[in-house]
Design a protein around this nucleic acid. Sequence first.
DNA 1: CGCCAAAGTCTTACGTTGTAAATTTATGCC
DNA 2: GGCATAAATTTACAACGTAAGACTTTGGCG
Lengths: 203, 203
Amino acid sequence: MPRALSDEAVGAFRERLIDAAERLFARNGLDAVTMRQLAAELGVSPMTPYRYFADKDAILAAVRARGFDRHAAALNAAFDAAGPDPLAATAAAGRAYVDFAFSHPEAYKLMFDISQPNEADYPDLLAAADRSRRTMTRGLEAMAEAGLFAGEPKLVGHMFWAALHGPIMLAFSGKLEPGYGARRIIAGLMEGLQRGLLRTEPA
Amino acid sequence: MPRALSDEAVGAFRERLIDAAERLFARNGLDAVTMRQLAAELGVSPMTPYRYFADKDAILAAVRARGFDRHAAALNAAFDAAGPDPLAATAAAGRAYVDFAFSHPEAYKLMFDISQPNEADYPDLLAAADRSRRTMTRGLEAMAEAGLFAGEPKLVGHMFWAALHGPIMLAFSGKLEPGYGARRIIAGLMEGLQRGLLRTEPA
DNA sequence: CGCCAAAGTCTTACGTTGTAAATTTATGCC
DNA sequence: GGCATAAATTTACAACGTAAGACTTTGGCG
């Protein structure tokens, strides 16, 4: 139906396209997401997506942004469901972080992929990633600001984030041997960091 | 020169090929390593490398293995140069780890790339990666065994390893904002973990 | 000394990829 | 109702990994 494509129609098609990309992606990994497969999944010709996205990178950026949104939602849900104790809520968010990574490994890998072409070209992605990051670190920052932790709040937040991310990425790259899985390493790190940073006695 | 290609000749060509791949790789990233470019760099036809490696993946596996070897060498050098104090030597190896990652980012990225096809098919790579891992964690394990650290030695080694890897990977994926770089996060983590795990008073 | 089987290399070719360009198709407006 | 034009499709191209086949060189045997 040519002539005029309403903004909603454009948006709807974009969503459908991102859905399809997520599906292919989760099903068979990154290699399965080709323009032709994507088009087939949508029942359109291989060039049609180019009316809605600049190129394949833009599509992947949208999928990534969607991943960050899901991620943030999962963390927020866990955080909110954990009750009022900030320490318990933060721990719950941490568990949700790891659970997300291992139940949506393809999504997590894509989100933190190392060869992203000019992330800055996709403001929506930047915004989603930033929202997600703030969600990750907000509990910790709140704790740090409340004086439960020593050190600069934002830095402490990043430290815990990295302490989750490191073991997860080592696991994904197949570098961990059986018996030393990501969850065990994370447990050790969380305990060690808590012992090192937590002010159990607020003096 | 057909008929019979001595083992040394095969080995020599393989080395030349890996060298060329490393060069292309460091120069223009992974996308620059195409069979045709590689062949051009070596002055042979695009199919010649297939006499020396099964396929492109095998070449990349060799480059990865080489990376792990360089990595292990760099850590060992730093460790050995640091003197007898195990804590100082371990700290030096940690610094060398980070320095390696940021001075050979392409190599580090490739080594810990997340979409490696059947790593188990390349025993040389497995061996090199394992050698490298042991180098990384040996100082820490020694310290842990000497009772300087609480907890299981090997686990503690993996914890520190992951605490280096996490910030580095976050930096490579462009997720860290200015002011919260990998080195700062690592410094915080090392300090926090030391405080949490180190037995300053061997009671 | 000469020739030939075979190892090494090169050329050619195929299927797949992302996407540019040209073509077709279908509608809102006069 | 016809036409300008937006959307979609078809066609086409360059680059990729690599399979298949042709060519080229040489060690070993008569």
